[in-house]
Each structure stands twice: as C-alpha cells, then as structure tokens.
Design a protein around this nucleic acid. Structure first.
Lengths: 95, 95
DNA sequence: CCTTAGTGTAACGCAAAGGGTTACAGAGCG
DNA sequence: CGCTCTGTAACCCTTTGCGTTACACTAAGG
C-alpha cells in the first residue's frame, strides 16, 4: 500500500524529459502538436495525461505510452481512494 | 506488443464477477451505489471504468481497484494507439 | 532602460464522457 | 396475464481535455 501522495505525472515529465534535455515548454508543446496551455496545465498538475497525450509523448520522446498512463493511473487512484469512505457500497457475496 | 483488441473491462467484470456469483445487473448496481444504467453501460462497453468506479468495485468485490483501472488503461491505450498516425508529433532530442 | 523569449494563467467556446432520472420495449417465468 | 430483469434512448448536469487570445511577470541581452 503506497501511503505517499504520488507526484502528478506532469512533474515527472518535466523532471525526466524537459529539464534534462533543456527543452522549453513552448517548443515541447509545438513538437507534441498541442497548445502551450495544454502542456503547461499538465506540467503544473492542473490536467491529467489523456490516452492521446500519452501516445504523443511516446512518439516525441521514444518512451512507452503505457508508462505515462500508469503514472496517471496511480495518481488518479490515490485521490479516488481518499474518498472511499464517502462511497456507500455494500459488500457483495455469492447470491 | 499486444496486437489483439483487448476486451472492454465491463466484459471482464460480467464474466468474472457477476456471472460466477449469480448477481443481476440491478442488484449489483444497487450494491455499488450507482444507477442501473451506469453499470449497464460499463458491462456493455459503452462506458469506461472511472477511478471512483474502480474503488467501488474493490469495495464490493474485495478486488484491487488498480487491476480494474489497469484493464481500462490497456483498453484505452489500444484505441489511442490506433490513431497514432493521425498525430503530427515531432521527435524530440536534446536541444 | 527597453525589448524579447519563456512562462503561468484567466476568459471563452467546443466536444466528449461519466452519472442521474424517467420511460419504453423485449425476454423469461409463475 | 402480471412481474422482474435488462438494454437503451432522451434529457440535463458537471467535469475535463483542448484550442485561441490576451495579459502580467520574469530573466536575459542590447
């Protein structure tokens, strides 16, 4: 059970891709074929990585699209689990 | 590289949970705390499994929320990869 | 000091997706 | 024939990803 707040995938993207390669948000956005705002939103945690964006990242950086979506999954899941107590769900057993 | 069209998670849900336990869509939806339409949509492939729904499933069936989202991820990714040729993305290398 | 590049972000608009309710049609059964 | 379960369409709401335009801030350079 991971108890720590996972970083949003955009943070990882910046630290692992943009920064080491000396890429600006502007030029990276252009290469990805998205607007600067979109990439900015991802990097600053205001937006998630959509399946299409994951494919874009895999094309531009030669990485695995699945790994990006996995990061996003962990992030989304962590936040969803936080609200599990609010969900009124009945345990299901064989009828 | 998985070349086969992965089944939508709802199909798996029905075959692995509802059917074996003899559960109806109606009663399962009630236990999950969602409408019958919502569960029906998932089972019949017209909707995906959201993070919140994954947590609901984990609570009701005692399974891992992550495994449901992973199935969904594989499904979404497969469809996103199909359209990769339409994306105009430039390969990025160190500046 | 002024200009320019890069960046974050607000304001709009658009489209897709999840979810709810209501309602109707078809299938199976006592 | 009634009753239950099921799939689904119609409608409405909200969130979210994405685009464009525009404005303010910062850092670097002439």
């Amino acid at each position: 059970m991971k108890t720590h707040n996972p970083p949003h995938p955009g943070e990882v993207l910046k630290k692992l891709c943009l920064d080491p390669m000396g890429l600006s948000v502007t030029e990276t956005a252009q290469s990805l074929g998205v607007s600067r705002k979109t990439l900015s939103g991802i990097i600053n945690g205001r937006a998630g990585i959509s399946p299409e964006m994951a494919v874009r990242l895999s094309l531009a950086f030669g990485t695995s699209a699945e790994s990006w979506l996995s990061h996003q999954l962990q992030y989304d899941l962590w936040h969803a689990e936080k609200g599990r107590k609010r969900l009124r769900v009945t345990r299901l057993t064989a009828a």
